[in-house]
């Protein structure tokens, strides 16, 4: 290996290298700052356009007031339907458990005594 030859000479930094350093860093910072600014504004613009599309608060209410006219009979019919529907619902069960005992009646067909192994023993 060649012998180590370390110099420490700040005078090696010339004018051009300083320009590269500062201009380079500022350009990187500037380029990303422009993108950051653009996308912040873009989001604000998108929000604005969305709100504009939806219209001012109260616009739709006014529209509905003029359009929707319901008679008393219709209201009563809807209310009755809703009442019947909700009274049919079972929100809560009774939580009573019923255990029914099932007794098995004896049959030779289900008997263990006459199982196939026992038959084998007789042979």
């Amino acid at each position: 290996m060649e012998p180590l030859n370390i110099t420490f000479d700040p005078s090696l930094i010339d004018h051009y290298s300083l320009v590269i350093t500062f201009a380079g860093y500022l350009i990187v910072l500037g380029a990303l700052a422009i993108m950051a600014y653009f996308f912040t504004r873009l989001h604000t613009l998108q929000d604005f356009l969305k709100k504009r599309k939806l219209g001012k608060p109260g616009d739709n209410e006014q529209e509905q007031k003029t359009k929707v006219v319901m008679t008393g009979e219709e209201n009563a019919a809807i209310a009755a339907a809703l009442y019947l529907f909700f009274s049919e619902l079972h929100d809560e069960e009774k939580y009573v458990m019923t255990i029914r005992k099932v007794s098995k009646t004896y049959s030779p067909w289900s008997s263990k005594i006459y199982g196939i192994l026992n038959t084998m023993k007789h042979w």
Binding site: T7, D9, I13, S17, L29, L32, A33, M35, H43
Partner: peptide, 26 residues
């Protein structure tokens, strides 16, 4: 969160400081 882009740009200071450092070392 576009403002976080600035952090990515700021960290590039390592490149430019080291550029000068390497020049000082010849």
């Amino acid at each position: 969160n576009p403002k976080l882009m600035l952090l990515g740009a700021a960290a590039q200071v390592g490149i430019f400081v080291t550029f000068l450092g390497a020049m000082v070392l010849g």
